[in-house]
Amino acid sequence: MTSKSDHHERMANMTFAAVYPHYVTKVEKKGRTREELHQVISWLTGFNEQALEKHISDKITFKHFFQKARLNPNAHLITGMICGYRVEEIENPLTQQIRYLDKLVDELAKGKKMEKILRTE
């Protein structure tokens, strides 16, 4: 196994519940709300509030989280740098989906307008 595939596997096996509190902290420190975070997650994944809470309480991995998601058809419009990578150039589909979510959380925390984050403009 190469270090690149190790990286992808590590990301796939992380639980959404382990990362979620960091998302909340990041956006709330910048004056955004948990509700806005949930709106962004829902836009990307199609999960409603109840499904999102269940995935958190069940401690599902990112692999299963995105397997259950209905990825927004406009997700491909999420571009830019995250963690030193251009999200549109990430070849592993699951890693790209995780980084899409990271990018949306970053945009929310940076104060971007919701219409721009949700790619409706």
Rank of each mutant, 00 (worst) to 15 (best):
M1V: 06
M1P: 10
M1E: 00
T2H: 13
S3V: 15
D6M: 14
H7S: 07
H8C: 14
R10P: 01
A12W: 00
M14V: 06
T15E: 12
F16I: 02
F16C: 06
F16L: 03
A17E: 06
P21N: 02
P21M: 01
P21I: 09
P21R: 00
V24N: 04
T25G: 09
T25V: 07
T25M: 04
K26M: 13
K26I: 02
K29R: 13
K30Y: 03
K30R: 15
T33C: 13
T33F: 11
T33Q: 14
E36Q: 11
E36M: 09
Q39Y: 09
Q39A: 12
V40M: 00
L44M: 01
T45P: 08
F47W: 12
E49K: 10
E49A: 00
E49W: 02
Q50V: 07
Q50T: 02
L52E: 13
K54M: 07
S57N: 10
D58Q: 15
H64G: 02
Q67R: 05
K68F: 11
A69G: 04
A69Y: 03
A69H: 11
R70E: 13
L71Y: 10
P73G: 05
P73C: 08
N74M: 10
N74G: 05
H76P: 05
L77A: 08
L77H: 14
I78W: 06
M81Q: 03
C83R: 12
Y85L: 11
R86S: 13
E88T: 05
N92W: 01
L94G: 06
L101F: 14
V105Q: 05
E107N: 14
L108R: 01
K110A: 15
K110Y: 15
G111W: 09
G111C: 08
M114P: 06
E115T: 11
K116A: 13
K116N: 13
I117C: 05
T120R: 01
